[in-house]
Structures are given as C-alpha cells and as structure tokens.
Amino acid sequence: MARTPSARRIRKLIAERERSRGLLIAFEGPDGSGKTTQRKLLTRWLESSDHQVVSTRWASSPLVKPMLKVRKKIRTLSIEEYSLLHAVDVRHRVETTILPALWAGKTVLADRYLFTALARDAARGLDLDWLLHAYSPLLWPDLVIYFSMTPEDSRRRIASTRAPHFYEAGQDVTGIEDPLASYGRFIDRVVKEYNNLSVVFQFVTVDAGDAVYRQHTHVRQLVEQAAKRPWLEFSEEAVEEWLIKSHTLEA
C-alpha cells in the first residue's frame, strides 16, 4: 500500500491543476425535456472547436448497470435500494470516468447528474439530508443546465413517444397501475424537488419549450460564460479521495 501523501501536497497539486482541468457540465430536467438532444449538439460544437469531450450518461457504470437493469425489470427494488444503487453508479463514474477526464483537461458532459437522484428519491419520500450524505463527498459541477418544463408538458411529451418504465413512472410509490397516470403524479413531485434544488445548487435554466436551435444557442452562451467552481473551495474532499485512491499522485 502506498504511503498517503500529505494533505498540503495534495492541496498544492489540486490548486496547480485548477487552470488546466476540464469543465464539468450537468444536464438536468424532467424526462422529455430535450437534455440528450442538447448534450449531443453541444458535444459536436465543442469538438468542432477542438475541445476534448467526454459524455457520461445516467446509470451507465459497467459495474452497476447489469444489477440495476435486472432488478428494475423484475421490480424488486425498495426505495432505499434503488437510491443506494444509483449512488454507487454516480460514485463509480465520478471515480473512473469523470475525474480522470477532468484531470486530463477534458470537458465532461453529464447527461443527468446526482440532482436527478436527489429529485427523484426525495420525490419518493427519502430525506434529502440523508441523500446528500450518501452522495458525499460531492463533486460539484461547474455548470448545471436545467431544462425547465411543466409537469404537464413532460407528461404530454412522454405520452407521445413511449410508456414510461415502472420506476420512471414512480409506480413503486404512487401504486397507480396505469404508467402514464402514475408518471403524471410522480413528475409533479419531481419537478417540485428540482425547483428546490435549483436554488441551492444554482442551476441555470433553459426553457425546454423553446425551439431546439434557440435552446442550443442559449446553451452555447452559458458554456462560453461558465466559470469554474474552484475545486479547493467546492470539491476538495472528492478530488483528494480520488487522487489518493487512483495513485495519480505517484505518477
């Protein structure tokens, strides 16, 4: 086991990396709000300006994805299990995808970040304080773009494309058999939670009802103006823990 470097040395390394590290941008919003479309458009635009971009999607960690998939399919997850497995997913992606990419100077676009879990799990009745604890230490995104839409619009958009899945529709908590009816009730709570989170975590709002090109223009402006949230001030513990674990310090 390698000797743990001093806290002072780690702080120095983090401070030195601040200038060259990449930007972490989170895309948040209810289902059907156009996050993925905008994330793809932004990726193309950033890549055309010679930025290296890494995208990371919700529940995509190779470690947790198979476990979650099976359990979601057979609808066997309790609220706590559902929440904890998503916390593992986020933690694993932060440690293996997001932080290594940021450290290497790449821009990371997170198609849903931990706020999705906070909003959905709080809507399921879990204590927000406990949720924040499960996700700590937090790696704060530099920019959170929230695609805002009313619960009714979200329901309408989802209804026109597909039937929501059991957990997506919140059927585990509403007990309503019709997925769309359940989704309508559940998304109402989720949007309320998002609105609360937007204040605490300083989301920047984009109107999801706008035309796609207008939204994209707005997103570009936001990214151009985005300032880094200094790691030492916001995310020191998360970065420090990763540095020690990944042996990046020895390199």
């Binding site: 309790s78 706590e80 497995l85």
Partner: peptide, 18 residues
C-alpha cells in the same frame, strides 16, 4: 475491472443491508 473504491463497496453493503 476491479476499479472500485471502499466508499462504493460501503454503498453496496448498505444496499444489501436494505
């Protein structure tokens, strides 16, 4: 791929305990 942290393992322990 055994790239996993003790924090992640603790979260999985918590899910198992739940």
């Amino acid at each position: 791929d055994r790239n996993i942290s003790v924090r992640s393992l603790s979260l999985i322990y918590a899910a198992d305990l739940a």
